[in-house]
Design a protein around this nucleic acid. Structure first.
Lengths: 228, 228
DNA sequence: TTAGTTTGCGTATTTATGACACAAATGTAA
DNA sequence: TTACATTTGTGTCATAAATACGCAAACTAA
């Protein structure tokens, strides 16, 4: 009645980072062992018997890339029987956000290398990881419509144009700068400071803002409507 | 390098049904075997080696309750090490919608009984299934805000008041009938017919509508903003 | 000083939301 | 038949939000 199962369980993480100069990036590691040796893949690995799934992801991110993550949520579970050449491996994928300027990537013994890749210029990925990343990007684009975004990705203080560029990058379309600011002010998640951008590459230096964390996480729970 | 794992994988389904007279219901089965023998639980079971996760859910729903489902999506994967007294069992939960008037529930050998329960009057559930149902209800309430809902739950032809009651039930608050209709007309997913409700319990018989499937599924993909 | 760029702070128009009024079409009880 | 309760169909109207712009101020680089 309880059939003998031959299924193994692993976790994978799609961690997004953002630097305003570039685009949205995904954290990838280069595999040191077969299958897909020397190919880029998502950080992840097998779940240990006693740990929760979240613990497994956190552990793998730490040991494979030296990343300490500040936002993590479950994304999707991938279970096609043929997705892993070693046999049946079901993977629970997680979705993470970090500010890449907060730490240095450190590839460990498990990985030859760990790097950020622009989501529009990804290398060939191991397993079905291209599909996993695609699912995560879709989730990001959906999330931005009903939850505030930015706290986990931007510096502590930032000009509004950084936040606007983040939205433009994720939504992949231009946004009117002035209407964007009005909308954000309306939500009340931004606090202005009496400080200005130090050395703008050009133009008038922008006022710096930071998130009102209380209001930000309140709206993250309640939901927003962001259609700009 | 690939540690010996002692984890088993199962799937569970939270299937919602709706009859306009009542509330939203969940399909539960009564267990015939330990653990939690004779307790109500979500339909589900162990994944077979060769089948996909979707195949596993569909199979279990069919054998345990005789249900043929018309909408199914992955909900969440529950992996706390202590969630099953038999040992480590990770469960991939699915979320389904059906119109209960379309078929008769049929409990099979695997289940003593299969019945619909009002989501506000659930019995004590086996395992962590109360948490799973709660997660599914939250998903339903979130989904309704950015996807059209109703096609999978209502009869082929229905008065708008049925759809409105569905929204009121899921959102758990009253909605202005006239503004609701305006909003729905605006989305363009409803088609009017030259037919009327046959024997209304009281009042003027309502015009019958059906969904414009093409537009409905287009909006399901693109997303809507439903804030009424 | 001048040209180029980016920010800050506006306005005007259109569109959507939310509250509510009233007549038309039915069943039911006197 | 008639009066009444009930529910539907079709509106209006004030207010809030979305969208498309205009233009001066503050900076850099030449």
């Amino acid at each position: 009645m309880e059939p003998k199962q031959n299924i193994r369980l692993c976790v994978d993480a799609v961690v997004f980072g953002y630097t305003a100069k570039e685009s949205i990036s995904v954290l990838l590691i280069k595999r040191t062992i077969p299958p897909f040796m020397h190919r880029w893949a998502l950080p992840g690995g097998f779940v240990l018997d006693g740990e929760t799934l979240e613990e497994a992801v956190t552990r793998e991110l730490h040991t494979e890339a030296g990343v300490h993550i500040n936002y993590l949520e479950q994304l999707y579970t991938f279970g096609r029987p043929e997705r892993d050449p070693r046999g049946r491996v079901v993977s629970v994928a997680y979705f993470g956000l970090v500010n890449p300027t907060n730490f240095k990537l450190a590839a460990s013994s498990d990985a030859e290398d760990a790097r950020w890749f622009d989501i529009k210029k990804l290398p060939d990925l191991a397993f079905d990881h291209a599909e996993v990343v695609e699912t995560a990007v879709k989730r990001l684009r959906t999330k931005i419509r009903y939850e505030p975004l930015g706290f986990e990705l931007l510096d502590q203080k930032f000009p509004i144009s950084d936040l606007e560029k983040l939205y433009e990058t994720v939504l992949d379309r231009p946004i009117d700068r002035r209407n964007f600011q009005k909308k954000m002010n309306h939500f009340g998640i931004l606090m202005g400071h009496n400080e200005k951008q130090k050395h703008p590459s050009a133009g008038r230096p922008a006022k710096l803002y930071s998130f009102n964390e209380e209001q930000y996480f309140k709206l993250k729970q309640e939901g927003i409507i962001f259609e700009i």
